[in-house]
Design a protein around this nucleic acid. Structure first.
Length: 358
DNA sequence: AAAGCGGGGCT
DNA sequence: AGCCCAGCTTT
């Protein structure tokens, strides 16, 4: 085995050569020079696969060609465009940053790493990505791809989801950076992780780093990288009461520290287990929900699996002649035809589509 | 340091 | 069913 310095230089050189030779992923933000659009793409791509984020990137760049356009939009328009992409705080922070740049920086995206890092919704990864892609600054990105490639190539067994691990991988990545082409290097290492050094069944036969890859030679590919925490998946049971007149439905905006913040939903009753019509009515009586439920109809259920949560949702339709006042004062009656302009969680979008609400 | 936050693709 | 994705924020 070579010495550490040789192993490092082989890594960077081989990676760059591979990228120039075999770069096949053609994505619109790769050739982008506008810092605003690079920023937008990086926010969308946080914890999101490129192909999942792509249609959202196209929608947003069309709706908001400049940061000024985004800053001027109504919040609800942005959340509706973001609908289905998940991690909705990204959208909230994105709007705040667009307005900060427009109002405080005269529309000019900050071009120093430390200033970029201060923006809302931008952490170490995104700051390095924007700094290198938009401004050519020498900052190495560290994302899930980088953890995997580095852990395997160097045989690093330190868990990456710890303070120690994050520091170790960040320093290693920075030391490997080709500072004369930091953008190309960052693209290359992420592309390799996404297309060759994949989590399961990596294509080691196509890998330019195989000759010096520690995990390949020690047969530890499947064991690296090491993650210390296991995600625990719980279950929650939602029951939506679809309170409707002929052309209106009652909805509210979700607030508080919980999932789906800033999205909308019908009247929700959450319980520790799934309820049927009878037990649900008993619960409604307990809670003092005295509107007539004689026309309550079970309309089906949906299960949605999130990373840390399984949400089982049951839907109950309740028709009424006229809007009523609910104890939940934060909701409103809206016209069913207006639902197309309001953002909902994916499970509600699925239900509405199935029931032809929009 | 740990927990919380979506949705989807792949195996 | 488990893993993880161009991670960040809050506690």
């Amino acid at each position: 085995m070579k010495g550490e310095a040789a192993k490092n230089s082989f890594f960077t050189k081989s990676l760059m050569n591979w990228h120039e030779r075999d770069n096949t992923r053609d994505l619109p933000w790769k050739s982008e020079k506008d810092p605003y659009k690079i920023w937008l793409s990086e926010i969308i791509l946080q914890q999101t696969r490129a192909l999942q984020g792509l249609p959202y990137y196209l929608k947003f760049t069309e709706a908001f060609p400049t940061v000024k356009d985004m800053a001027a939009c109504a919040d609800e328009q942005a959340f509706r465009l973001w609908q289905g992409l998940g991690y909705y705080n990204r959208c909230k922070n994105m709007l705040a940053t667009a307005r900060f740049i427009t109002d405080e920086l005269d529309g000019h995206f900050p071009d120093k790493h430390e200033d970029i890092l201060k923006l809302k919704g931008i952490g170490p990864y995104t700051a390095a990505a924007i700094a290198s892609f938009a401004f050519g600054l020498p900052h190495a990105v560290v994302d899930g791809n980088v953890y995997r490639v580095l852990a395997r190539y160097f045989g690093i067994e330190t868990p990456f989801d710890t303070t120690e691990g994050k520091k170790l991988f960040a320093e290693k990545a920075q030391s490997l950076l080709n500072t004369s082409d930091s953008a190309g290097y960052n693209q290359a290492i992420m592309d390799l992780g996404a297309t060759v050094c994949t989590p399961q069944t990596p294509k080691c036969g196509d890998c330019p780093l195989q000759r010096n890859c520690t995990a390949f030679h020690e047969n530890t590919i499947a064991l690296l990288p090491v993650k210390s925490k296991k995600t625990v998946v719980g279950t929650r049971f939602f029951h939506y009461l679809l309170l409707q007149t002929d052309d209106q439905i009652w909805i509210r905006k979700r607030t508080g520290k919980d999932i789906w913040q800033n999205l909308h939903e019908p009247f929700l009753l959450e319980y520790s287990e799934a309820l049927n019509s009878n037990s649900l009515q008993a619960l409604m009586n307990e809670k003092g929900l005295h509107f007539s439920t004689e026309n309550m109809v079970y309309e089906g259920n949906l299960k949605q699996r999130l990373t840390h949560l399984l949400v089982e949702t049951r839907f109950f339709g309740i028709k009424m002649k006229a809007p009523i006042k609910l104890p939940d004062n934060d909701g409103t009656w809206v016209s069913v035809k207006d639902l197309k302009n309001i953002a909902f969680p994916k499970t509600l979008v699925s239900f509405f589509e199935k029931k032809l609400y929009f």
